[in-house]
Amino acid sequence: MTLSDAPRINCKSLADLDSQRSGEVARIFNIQRYSLNDGGGIRTVVFFKGCPHTCPWCANPESISSAIHTVRRETKCLHCTPCLNNVRECPATAMEHIGQNISFDELVKEVLKDEIFFRSSGGGVTLSGGEVLMQSAFATRFLNHLKRLGINTAIETAGDAPAGFLLLLAKQCDQVLFDLKIMDIQQSKAALNLRLPRVLSNFALLIKENITVIPRIPLIPGYTFNKNNFQAILNFLAPFSLKEIHLLPFHQYGEAKYRLLNREYTMRDVPAPTEQEVKEFYLMAEQAGYIVTIGG
């Protein structure tokens, strides 16, 4: 599904979304089919729009704002006047919306188009973002519906939300892909706008509730890509006796999106870690007893 195919529903803000009865509308910015990451098997990933965090390395900067906004792809633009920056009138399709409101029923219909791939591969549906917890009412109801249809469900989250919201959503998941980033409380707040004590408390709560949690650690130069921080993560995880861990090395795939959005990208000149550098962290996790996946 392209964003322009999604139904347009009048909705003023994300506050309006979650205030609607039973969470009947979501704001998304992409549906990615045939994903081999983000959970097991072939998956359809629904990207929710809006994130409270400020990670400088974010590969989906279009997910940060909860607003629907319009961009122009300069390589397509004819620099004519008839469209007046109107997406529907643009003759070159250079203008496009980022973000759409989509109804519950329409989103169910869209993901079920891939049901045969879920059944044959052991895959399913993953909700990502942005931060899916910003639209937790919709997401909880949506995953509950999929689970009743026998479809594997997962979320990707930083876990920085009231525990009750996270727990209700996590109970509808076959697995929770849970990001752990900077382990210093002050630095985590200053750099990412992330409440680390709440994140760690929520992580422990999910384990206590016997929810399958897979920790994911982004390896970001200048932030998380140092052995002290990584060891602090391993120390935090040690009491939970988890089997699996995912390492997510920094990459520059999102740079073009910052230019499209006219946003500053402070990580532009930061080199991606080498394979050998990543291997050192792989071995640390492996020696701690984990099955380690690069990517995921």
Rank of each mutant, 00 (worst) to 15 (best):
N262G: 11
L177A: 02
C173L: 04
D105G: 15
E74F: 05
K171G: 00
I185F: 07
I102C: 05
V25T: 13
F118Y: 15
K113V: 11
K171H: 03
N193A: 15
T81G: 04
F142C: 04
R21H: 15
A94Q: 02
A191P: 01
P273D: 11
M95S: 08
T81H: 05
S121K: 14
R148C: 00
A170H: 08
C77N: 02
Y265L: 06
D184I: 12
K76Y: 11
R195I: 02
I64A: 02
A170S: 14
Q20N: 15
V71N: 10
V111M: 10
P273N: 13
N262L: 14
R259P: 01
A163G: 13
G254W: 07
P82F: 06
L237V: 12
I217E: 06
L3W: 03
L248S: 07
V292H: 08
S121Q: 11
G164Y: 10
V71L: 12
T81P: 01
P61Y: 05
S19I: 09
I214T: 15
G122D: 04
L237E: 15
P218D: 04
V199K: 11
N144Q: 04
T157M: 08
L177F: 02
E280D: 11
L283P: 01
D184H: 12
C77Y: 00
L196I: 12
F165E: 14
Y258V: 05
R8T: 07
R88D: 06
Q175R: 15
K279P: 00
I116K: 11
K227T: 06
C173G: 03
F236N: 10
F250L: 08
E275S: 13
G150W: 02
N144V: 01
T54Q: 04
K208Q: 10
I185K: 13
R195N: 12
H97E: 10
Q32D: 06
F48N: 09
C77E: 02
T140A: 11
M183I: 13
K181N: 05
G129T: 01
F118W: 08
I31A: 09
P56E: 09
M267V: 06
D179H: 09
F104C: 13
D18E: 15
L219R: 14
N235V: 03
T70Q: 14
R216Y: 05
I207A: 12
I211M: 14
S120Q: 13
I28C: 05
A163M: 13
A67T: 06
L133F: 03
F118R: 09
A191E: 13
L261H: 07
R8G: 02
D160V: 04
T54H: 08
M134T: 09
E96I: 12
A92R: 01
C51D: 00
G39M: 03
F138C: 12
L194I: 09
D38E: 04
M134D: 01
I185A: 15
D174F: 06
P56I: 06
L133T: 02
T54P: 01
T75P: 03
E115S: 13
K109Y: 10
L237C: 14
G254Q: 08
G164E: 12
